[in-house]
Simulated assay, not measured.
Amino acid sequence: MRKLIFLLPLFFFIACKQKAKKEPVAETPTTGTIKMVVDESFAAVLADQIEVFRLDYPDTKFEMLQGNENKIVPTFLNDSVRVAVLSRMLTPEETNFYTKRSIKITTTRFALDGIALFTGNNSPDSTITVDEVISILQGNNPRGKKLVFDNAYSSTFRYFKALANITAVPKTGVYTLNNNNDVIKYVAAHPDYIGVAGVNWLLRGDRDMNDFIPQVKLMGVKNVKGKTGDDEFYKPEQRNLINGKYPFVRSVYFINAEGRTGLGTGFATWLRSQRGQLIVLKSGLAPHKITSRDFNLKSDN
């Protein structure tokens, strides 16, 4: 009897604790769970954002599916995931998928990404013009330069096809591999090729790439005549992304189709906050907006 009296409070405590664990966390801008698809070019900076965000808001959980654009957009549109991070806004047809169901989409730009052109350290080339890049993509390549992209379905490849106004690439001069790491490795070993990848990937590459990234160099790019950056060759450095002098720049968007005020709303606000923008700056991307600093000048008189 004494043992039973002693054990009853213990059983009661365990039962209450198990019940508490089963209670779901409320869905608010700073609590809950969110699933999102992320263009693999921006996975590293998103991971950094999530890490810091969860330090402030530990009752949050993020499930991130990363991949090339053609792979992740269908997942977003089949309603299994309601948040996407892309280098483009949704098309009218894609937006209509949610509009016809009366679900409002909010799109937040939080960063600018520079698409870097790079070549092997032993390559004699260190500069290229936008006109030359377009000519290569269109199959007019008298100098025999060769471009290498991550894969045929990536947002980076789509960006350059749109730039050259083409739907199909020439049989020679333009090549695709499987991912950004493959491009870096290939260009490091073949100095006569020019690799194409987001600058964030070069700055924050996988640990496995530590031996290869030092073997490539960024190229300077001159814009077409009449546009900003046509006066000299510019590299994808942050100041050149911000002032628009580097020509290959794309916006990075956080697209939220949750249809309510939940964790997606809170995280989108965080990405545009001062802390979120500082993380963008640290990643090598350019922030959506540079936060001004105010100084109070005091006089001793």
Results as ranks from 00 to 15, higher is better:
residue 84 A to N: 08
residue 17 K to M: 14
residue 89 M to A: 06
residue 260 R to P: 02
residue 159 Y to R: 02
residue 282 K to E: 14
residue 263 L to G: 06
residue 242 I to G: 01
residue 230 D to M: 03
residue 127 T to C: 00
residue 3 K to T: 11
residue 298 K to A: 11
residue 286 A to C: 06
residue 128 I to Y: 03
residue 254 F to R: 02
residue 33 T to M: 12
residue 43 A to L: 12
residue 122 N to V: 00
residue 148 V to E: 03
residue 93 E to F: 10
residue 148 V to F: 05
residue 18 Q to T: 10
residue 218 L to H: 01
residue 6 F to Y: 13
residue 243 N to I: 04
residue 160 F to W: 04
residue 93 E to Y: 08
residue 159 Y to T: 05
residue 176 T to V: 14
residue 186 Y to S: 13
residue 255 I to A: 12
residue 67 G to Q: 12
residue 141 N to R: 13
residue 199 V to F: 12
residue 12 F to Q: 10
residue 121 N to Y: 02
residue 291 T to H: 15
residue 100 K to F: 12
residue 193 Y to G: 03
residue 109 R to K: 14
residue 47 A to Q: 12
residue 41 S to W: 04
residue 220 G to T: 03
residue 130 V to S: 10
residue 159 Y to F: 14
residue 58 P to W: 10
residue 50 I to G: 01
residue 138 Q to N: 14
residue 140 N to D: 11
residue 92 P to S: 02
residue 45 V to T: 15
residue 37 V to P: 01
residue 74 P to K: 08
residue 222 K to N: 07
residue 99 T to S: 10
residue 60 T to Q: 06
residue 119 T to N: 06
residue 279 I to Q: 05
residue 77 L to F: 11
residue 135 S to I: 00
residue 150 D to M: 05
residue 63 E to V: 13
residue 53 F to K: 09
residue 172 T to G: 00
residue 140 N to E: 08
residue 167 T to G: 09
residue 262 G to A: 12
residue 198 G to C: 10
residue 277 Q to K: 00
residue 23 E to P: 01
residue 170 P to L: 03
residue 291 T to S: 11
residue 233 F to N: 07
residue 252 V to H: 00
residue 138 Q to Y: 01
residue 22 K to C: 02
residue 186 Y to L: 14
residue 293 R to L: 12
residue 128 I to F: 04
residue 155 S to D: 10
residue 265 T to N: 12
residue 263 L to T: 02
residue 280 V to N: 05
residue 254 F to T: 01
residue 1 M to R: 07
residue 286 A to N: 01
residue 271 L to E: 00
residue 203 L to K: 15
residue 249 V to K: 14
residue 160 F to Q: 00
residue 157 F to Y: 14
residue 131 D to G: 14
residue 85 V to H: 03
residue 83 V to A: 06
residue 275 R to A: 11
residue 60 T to N: 04
residue 234 Y to N: 04
residue 231 D to F: 02
residue 88 R to E: 10
residue 85 V to L: 03
residue 175 Y to Q: 04
residue 13 F to W: 09
residue 266 G to D: 01
residue 289 K to F: 07
residue 87 S to C: 07
residue 44 A to T: 13
residue 155 S to V: 11
residue 83 V to E: 05
residue 130 V to G: 02
residue 278 L to M: 11
residue 32 G to E: 09
residue 127 T to M: 04
residue 244 G to Y: 11
residue 168 A to K: 14
residue 53 F to W: 11
residue 143 R to K: 15
residue 283 S to L: 04
residue 301 N to T: 10
residue 114 G to K: 06
residue 77 L to T: 08
residue 271 L to M: 15
residue 244 G to A: 09
residue 46 L to V: 07
residue 19 K to E: 09
residue 45 V to R: 10
residue 47 A to Y: 05
residue 20 A to T: 06
residue 80 S to I: 13
residue 228 T to Q: 07
residue 30 T to Y: 15
residue 182 D to E: 14
residue 4 L to T: 06
residue 258 E to M: 11
residue 186 Y to G: 05
residue 203 L to P: 00
residue 34 I to D: 00
residue 215 Q to V: 01
residue 47 A to G: 03
residue 297 L to E: 03
residue 154 S to A: 09
residue 193 Y to P: 10
residue 153 Y to F: 10
residue 239 R to T: 06
residue 74 P to H: 09
residue 250 R to Q: 13
residue 132 E to D: 11
residue 216 V to K: 13
residue 259 G to T: 13
residue 145 K to Y: 09
residue 154 S to G: 12
residue 35 K to Q: 09
residue 240 N to K: 08
residue 184 I to H: 06
residue 93 E to G: 01
residue 55 L to P: 00
residue 286 A to T: 05
residue 82 R to E: 12
residue 186 Y to P: 03
residue 115 I to S: 02
